[in-house]
Simulated scan of single mutants.
Amino acid sequence: MKKVFAFVSIVFVFLLIIFLSISNIKGKQLNSALIENNSNEFAIYKVLNEITDIQNCFLDTLLLEDEAIFTDKDLVSYDWTEHKLLIKSNKYIDELRKNHLSLSHKPFIVVVNGERIYMGVSWSFASSAIAPSVPTIDWSELFYKQNKNSHNTYTIQIINNDTHGDYRNDKRVYDVLKNLDKLK
């Protein structure tokens, strides 16, 4: 009887592991399909996963929110030399400004034509923690600037240099922004 119970338990655990693995793969495929089928050519998405080792994660394995933080439709212009974004006010960014702690130290992904280009982190410059060596955006009031046309200005910055180079200068990002006539 004990052998049968042990065998049934092992089979159950094995089947549970297979089921969870398939569910996880399906979720990632669905998440990727949503992004790829999105008509936006340029977007920044919030990552849903909790990540502790940003430098060593694979972009394609991360689950992203269904709705982008902003897309090329929200983007007024992009200053390539300073990586400064002029973005139309939208409900998502307004919520970030009100509750920037919900995004503090959370990763985001820059997506071009459905392809994940690079990861950055929402980072408050008022934070006492050491900044990561990936691009950062501070959504907080401290660096928030709004012009009279209800547009917001944010900068994707590099605080700590990385030996891998500046991810922000990816040619695919430049090309899509140029094609969209968003470069300044």
Rank of each mutant, 00 (worst) to 15 (best):
I17H: 09
Q146Y: 05
N99L: 14
H105M: 13
A129D: 10
I18Y: 03
N37Y: 10
H105Q: 15
L15H: 05
D60R: 15
N169S: 15
E115N: 04
L16F: 10
E67I: 14
K46W: 00
N38K: 13
Q29F: 07
D79H: 04
T81G: 00
S32A: 14
I44S: 04
T163P: 12
I10Y: 05
N37K: 15
K88R: 10
D181K: 15
L15M: 11
C57G: 03
S122V: 04
L75F: 02
T52V: 11
N24S: 14
D94M: 12
F108V: 07
E115P: 00
E41Q: 07
K26H: 08
E41I: 06
I35G: 10
S128A: 09
L62V: 05
L59R: 14
L183C: 11
E67K: 15
D162I: 12
V4K: 13
D72R: 04
Y144P: 03
K91I: 02
S128Y: 07
V173H: 12
T52R: 06
L103Y: 09
K88D: 05
T153E: 07
K84S: 08
E82S: 13
I109C: 08
S150R: 11
S9I: 04
S128R: 07
P132Y: 08
P135E: 05
I159G: 02
A6M: 00
D79V: 03
R172V: 08
V47Q: 13
V11Y: 01
L183F: 06
I156E: 06
I44A: 05
I158N: 13
S89V: 13
T81M: 00
N113A: 12
D94V: 09
Y144D: 08
Y174Q: 04
L96N: 03
R97P: 02
F143D: 06
V176M: 14
V4P: 03
S133Q: 11
P132N: 07
L86D: 09
V110S: 05
N31K: 08
L103D: 11
A126G: 08
S23G: 08
R97H: 11
M119S: 08
S32Q: 13
H100M: 04
S21E: 11
Y45G: 04
F14D: 04
L20G: 00
A129C: 02
T71L: 12
V47S: 10
L103S: 08
D53Q: 15
I158E: 12
I109Y: 00
K26P: 01
T52S: 11
I109R: 00
M1S: 06
H164Y: 08
